[in-house]
Amino acid sequence: MLKKILILFLLAGVGLIFFDLFQSYQSASELTTTAKYYADNGAKEVGAANLVSAIVVTYRGLDTLGEVSILFVTAAIISFVLKHKPEEEDKNRVIKPASEILNTATVFLTPVMIMVGIYIFINGHLTPGGGFQGGAVIASAVLLIFLANPKFHLNHSIIAFVESISGVAFVVVGALGLIMAGGFLDNRILGLGEFGTLFSAGALPIIYIFIGLKVGAELSNIVGILAQEQNIKN
């Protein structure tokens, strides 16, 4: 009882702070100095129509490298914690087959979903989206496969291959910027091209393709490990 009262008390306190925040909030009428710099020069310097992509991949590309590493470490920890020997797997486990609708939808939708994911990360510098979003769409296609067939075996060697190759390529493209352009992850190692076309923004789309492949592989791996957990004998 005392605990409940304390929780309510704390929530009321936090709510009071939020109310104060809400009352003093007023949407800005002009950009801050940093944002103004990006708005004025982002398109000229990076050549990307999507300024968020320009910031994520070029201006703050090092943060993105760290972010991708965090995802990698997460996937590694999950596969370490949920490690099982193959003989622990319950071969006799009977699974009710998925419904006709789910099976047909999986056959139809999986290629389309993977294609949409690839489209999203290839066009990350022009439209909303990018490597992380495209990778998440690809992983949702893998999740759909697991929903239809829980005993599906994901080929871990292909996933590890794609993941490590794209991770290395990301760093190599970044290091090329150190030699051929202004600094690490500078996208001007290739021509900036015509603004707003697919082949523009220098190396930015290339980096985003590698990020997309890496994130897609990592999230698929996480989904696969979590899905295989139910095949283990208890």
């Binding site: 950009l31 801050t32 103004k36 990006y38 708005a39 999507n50 968020v52 439209t127 909303p128 707003g196």
Partner: peptide, 20 residues
């Protein structure tokens, strides 16, 4: 949205929200 449809002309700031 911070997605530009054309290169901003010199000296003007496009009317976009803060992308950071």
């Amino acid at each position: 949205a911070p997605i530009l449809d054309k290169m901003p002309t010199e000296g003007t700031t496009p009317a976009i929200v803060d992308p950071v």
